[in-house]
Write a protein that binds this DNA or RNA. Structure first.
Lengths: 209, 209
DNA sequence: GAGACTAATGACACTGAGTGCCGAAGGGAA
DNA sequence: TTCCCTTCGGCACTCAGTGTCATTAGTCTC
């Protein structure tokens, strides 16, 4: 899906070369969004800044809302692999906690950049709304693993609830991270998962019968 | 916020009467969306069906996406009251479970209607995305109560994580409800909350039979 | 009842996102 | 060079949403 303009090792491609990459285009748009605000930046402005036609831009990204996301799917595949390689006797919640933390680990030099992107994604209403659609794929990864471990289908109540809980905890952690300049994202994620364990482990609850 | 065109008991209102109510307009739009699909129904078509101008429609609802929601805020206020009236020694998770179940209790005759609305809200991409913004207010109610009970601010990690978890569990329950014609929504909600308690208490999960 | 005041309506024009269509441009292969 | 393939980008169009403003339909005062 990405790097589609880099010449493949298996022979040169035929036809006209793409004039830009998804990553470049995403990066250029992000610059503009951060500088002028998401709403104040038109798609035309992004296309002009990238030196491509407006029509071409919509061939790279299906909507303006998708521009800041860049290559999210690549990260998902990594998370899938990570989960596959975990020992199968790892407790479910621990396995998922580890995987989610790993998913959000970035090289130190990328962190300021990542922060600005997440600041947009979690604060611009249009992007907050749109993000739900992207998170669905993320939840699917979590639900698939939970289903595998529980021996049930991934569209059952249990895997879906678990996936939602991990997503929610992650977003709560991100919100804290953006609010506190000096905070550590991975620690906040772990803290959020601990909240889940402690809050919902309170056993004075009587399951409704 | 609603019933603004019904004459108030305290004297007649001044100025021209609203030509329609939010509830009526929402209902009319829902009919069209269900019949023809959300994407295939233009705002103009809704306005015409409602016998009002297109411009007027946007004074009642800020966007097409808001039309199917109707009066969501009224339910939120009810949930707030419900939580306020609970004994303060009710365990936090139990209190929230009860409140959320109560929030989703509807008269039997409204259930088929509610089902169709939720079917739209949870399946039409544009509405799924937009719903995140509406759910934020819902989460705030949960977070506020959790914060109160925990003696911390509602924008802290704990209340936010708890609110996300309850929202996620509720949505997972709704998805099951829509998928199984004969399912009971309130039972599914309780089941989803039990999933949270058992999974995060690291107990054994038994797939629902 | 006439005029003042108030609030909702709706027509019009405009911006901006997203799409279908199609010819042109740029590349490799024969 | 010629053919073929792929991307590019201009154009026209649909539709959501907004600012403006005259109009309509009420109430209140004199």
């Amino acid at each position: 899906m990405d790097a589609s303009n880099a010449p493949k090792t298996s022979g040169a491609r035929i036809g006209r070369q793409p004039s830009i990459s998804h990553a470049e285009l995403s990066h250029i748009s992000l610059q503009l969004f951060i500088e002028n605000g998401f709403e104040n930046t038109t798609v035309d402005a992004v296309a002009i800044a990238a030196g491509i036609g407006r029509r071409t831009l919509f061939r790279y990204f299906p909507s303006k809302n998708d521009l800041p996301w860049g290559d999210f799917d690549a990260g998902l595949e990594q998370m899938r692999s990570f989960l596959r390689m975990l020992p199968s006797d790892t407790p479910l919640v621990e396995a998922l906690s580890l995987a989610v933390v790993e998913f959000n680990r970035f090289p130190a030099e990328e962190i300021p950049f990542h922060r600005e992107r997440m600041d947009l994604l979690l604060n611009v209403p249009a992007l907050v709304a749109h993000s739900t659609l992207r998170y669905a794929a993320w939840r699917q990864v979590v639900a698939d693993y939970a289903a595998l471990r529980l021996g049930i289908e991934s569209d059952n109540l249990e895997p879906q609830t678990i996936a939602w809980a991990f997503l929610g905890a992650s977003l709560a952690a991100y919100e804290q991270w953006l609010k506190h300049e000096d905070a550590d994202l991975l620690e906040l994620l772990e803290a959020a998962f601990v909240v889940l364990r402690t809050v919902f482990a309170s056993l004075e609850i009587h399951p409704a019968g």
